[in-house]
Amino acid sequence: MASLRDIKSKINSTKKTSQITKAMEMVSASNFNRAESNAKKFVPYMDKIQEVTASIALGSKDATHPMLSSRPVKKTAYLVITGERGLAGAFNSNVLRLAFQSIQKRHKSKDEYVIIALGKMGREFFVKRDMNVILDITGIADQPTFADIKDTVNKTVNMFADGAFDELYMYYNHFVSAIQQDVTEKKVLPLTDIATSNKLTSYEFEPSAEEILNVLLPQYAESLIYGALLDSKASEHAARMSAMKSATDNAKELIDSYSLIYNRARQAAITQEITEIVGGAAALE
């Protein structure tokens, strides 16, 4: 049996750990609230741009654009959104596993795909496996703004336009609720399925539908990616919050069971001492 001192130090270190996890839980909770409100603020922009894009792309038949039509696929790009750190439960590993398995299944050689990693965990994962990471952003803030990722996203969309790759898939954690996040695969480019629920409006184009698509479609694709990043950030904070909550709970349980062992050991030591004293006194009589 462990000595009293050993058990005591175990209790103390578990207490320290639980203090840290508790603090991290609270930080994540506040980050999560802000991330959720950021995601909400983005909704009007996304809705509007989707509506206008759908109206123009679907409304005028003669409007064609390279970003709207599929072409033979020689190279596929995978954009994987992960977090900057671990300690968020299965958040990072889920999305990396799905991306990794899909790539393994679809491609035989390394020349058929490229990877764009948003987030340090994803970048390290793919670099370690020697896969083609062509673009990455690390050090994404907990509450990213559009300006933070604009350059990279812009480059990504331009690379598609220049023919560096022929389709773009995106992998990220979609936020469902504070306790549920689903890993999602989404095809970003070419923009073949522009969903629309509203009635299409017919517009005058100034100067022409093509000119507008040239401005609109890259902006639309970029906002799809930014939307996914916000979604993923909300998921990350939620995942970290629940991971840290269960860590704190586990630490409490551990402390309780250690305290029980400690008290038993203390009791046993006292009982033993009394027996020894009584035994000693009896021997003297």
Partner: peptide, 19 residues
């Protein structure tokens, strides 16, 4: 300022999109 030049919009303008 639109790509095609200065643009003024008053109430009652026809539906339009311009970069």
């Amino acid at each position: 300022k639109a790509e095609s030049g200065e643009l003024g919009i008053l109430p009652g303008h026809i539906p339009m999109v311009a970069p």
